[in-house]
Design a binder for these strands. Structure first.
Lengths: 397, 397
DNA sequence: CGGCTTATTTCAGGACTTGATTTAACTCGG
DNA sequence: CCGAGTTAAATCAAGTCCTGAAATAAGCCG
């Protein structure tokens, strides 16, 4: 019902230029002719736009493929050295800053620990700025060639004129995070929820390539999701869509979730809940073990049929599969991508079982056209995905 | 990741023209100047496009509002008589065909019963064609001014080059429904699932006006939904998104649903299931009563505190509210619109209770920004919504 | 080396949008 | 009843952009 905003003949050029850039960025080096075919633009226009892009240094010619009799095609590609993008992963225990060139090859990385008790926005902001300085120094890249900085935060991001962040994990409420960072840098800043940036990374460079309808389900300590429909993420009216963890899977009862409700998916499938259920059922984990090693151990123990661990994990698989089945029914995605550290741990061992449960909990037709896969990009993907924010901005012109 | 398809300077005009048409169609009559303001296009362009539209008879001038000293503005509006659209509602027991002018005022209507045992696609197609002839005759409108025919079918619609329909209720499997109708008419044909057309009607003309993120939940004998994100419906990869009814709300148990699984939302909330549960719990309904009157009676009986009916309906409200809560968490819509004949029956009496349960089953923030309302348009909306399909095509040019 | 083939570039033409400038259509005060 | 004042719409002269056709470039092959 809303209408795309266009208007002048100049916007047209910007759009065509952007279309060509996208096409060139994703996909092998191509000749002008092939680009013309791929985008539907006339060869003349492709030629014009490409001259522009080459003059600006954004696109470069890389070799030419000789045909059998005829002028050889000149292959073009986006110049990976034209500019650089920075991705920031704000985690619970550390801030990670990574610098990539345009081909998303990592050029520098910096980690700064966060005191778990001091999550003040100023502290986090100063860590990010320090990280930024560190990667710039390490890579020797001048700030002027940085196209932008993307920041993935553990909370919801309100894209108001000046970005405001709410974070339950950090106890942030309407924090003007953009302003805080703005004081320390003049670079373009972009923000999104960490789960979303991870989803975007997976969508662009991982298991979600060439997919336009997908759900990336992230199972860590809690459970989140990033829903992509028509190649763009669904954010909802206040940017908090994707709260898969608090879907009710046991209505009118069930375990109490940390959100206060009962019967949430997260109360069964989140790593925290899994370990808790294991302990309640009489299992034990080594003293002082963190969640990650506890879960790994649990999965190891579950190899023994009939063990407590096996029972707990079977149940976990049941709930997770049911949740995925629900997503399939509701959204009919082409692909479900399971990620997050706990998701990968579980998926490595139980993916077939999860698929089977999902099948049982979804309709035949949508299930048969959905593939359920694991993330390909590990947890570092948050920073990579954050870096796609400025990349996207760049590709759109 | 995909890029809008644009290209030539002519597409630009088409887009601007379309933008102006949309703006003019939704909203009061406006002057060129106001349109320029509203769309961001220059007054000159608005003038040009409007001349075109007026010449073609699509837009007409309606009065002019005099200002205090100065040339009066000429108010423009879309000419409701420029063309007509037809909406077809293919229900389980009848085919309804309605003809509207561009202001969506009904001009003619025809109902043809369907033998519940004979749902062959040829039969349905012939009924539609008969209905088409009937509304044309009744209204006296010549076929050439019909902009198109939208058909809402009870099943999933594959928008392949030639539309193919699967319908569980009719036992259709890959029926080339478009081809069947095409044999009887030369008019443009457009198809969609009936729940979607209803959702679209509600979104354009009902409770969803000026909303771009909404879910229309339809409770009838079964339960479906139409999800709107960013002003456009989510269809999923094979156009079967929105199957809310088969979301698991009782994992690892629960009632058996007609889909074969257990614990589906529909097994608790669909009218069929409600009545069934009532009977199982010892309630009785008059012999030979249809679902609709049975449910109405049940709701009436539930006024007696502690009655079986009250208990069943409380439970129904619980599951429905939980399902809605899940939608809120997952999609963070601005509005949830409850419809369908059973949904309206329930909602009339229980909306506050449903809202309360939804609140309990969703996170605080997304819930607080969502309103849960009833459909405004009754069940006839299916045909109205179907008619919006050609209307949309028309507005897009 | 010259004919042949295919990729790019150049060019003239046509379509658009736009800011500035006119023209149109009223109001109001004297 | 006229003319100044005011606001809306139309017209105009640039300036952009895309496109098909024609020209040019850059190789192959015999």
């Amino acid at each position: 019902m809303a209408e795309r905003k266009r208007g002048t003949v100049r916007d047209l050029r910007r759009d065509n230029r952007s279309m060509l850039l996208w096409s060139l960025y994703f996909g092998d080096p191509r000749s002008r002719q092939e680009l013309s075919l791929a985008t539907g633009l006339s060869p003349a226009s492709v030629s014009n736009v490409m001259r522009e892009l080459i003059d600006e240094g954004i696109v470069i010619e890389v070799g030419n493929v000789d045909s059998d009799g005829g002028r050889p095609r000149v292959l073009l590609r986006v110049n990976p050295e034209y500019g650089y993008v920075v991705g920031v992963d704000v985690g619970e225990t550390r801030v990670r800053v990574e610098l990539f060139d345009l081909s998303m090859t990592e050029r520098a990385k910096a980690d700064f620990p966060l005191d778990p008790l001091r999550h003040g926005a100023e502290v986090v902001a100063s860590r990010i700025l320090a990280g930024l300085a560190a990667v710039l120094a390490e890579s020797g890249i001048e700030p002027r060639s940085i196209l932008g900085v993307g920041v993935g935060v553990p909370g919801t991001v309100q894209q108001t004129p000046e970005v405001v962040v709410d974070s339950q994990t950090f106890g942030w409420d309407m924090v003007p995070f953009e302003r805080l960072l703005r004081e320390g840098t003049g670079l373009p800043l972009l923000f999104d929820n960490g789960a979303n940036t991870m989803g975007q990374a997976e969508l662009w460079f991982g298991s979600g390539r060439d997919t336009s309808n997908a759900v990336v389900a992230l199972v860590g300590s809690g459970v989140g999701a990033s829903i992509i429909s028509n190649s763009s993420p669904i954010r909802g009216s206040t940017a908090s869509a994707g709260e898969l963890g608090h879907l009710s899977v046991v209505v009118g009862g069930g375990r109490t979730c940390r959100c206060g409700n009962r019967g949430c998916l997260e109360a069964y499938v989140g790593a925290e809940a899994i370990v808790e259920r294991f302990l309640e059922a009489g299992g034990t984990v080594p003293e002082g073990a963190d969640q990650e090693s506890a879960l790994a151990l649990l999965i190891y123990e579950a190899e023994i049929p009939g063990s407590v661990a096996a029972r707990i994990l079977d149940e976990t698989v049941l709930y997770l599969g049911a949740g995925i089945g629900g997503l399939i029914n509701l959204l009919n995605p082409e692909r479900i991508i399971l990620g997050g550290w706990a998701g990968l741990l579980l998926g490595d061992r139980y993916l077939p079982a999860i698929q089977e449960v999902a099948r049982q909990h979804s309709l035949k037709h949508p299930f048969s056209t959905t593939s359920i896969e694991l993330c390909r990009l590990g947890p570092e993907a948050v920073a990579l995905g954050a870096a796609t924010l400025p990349l996207e901005r760049f590709l759109n012109g």
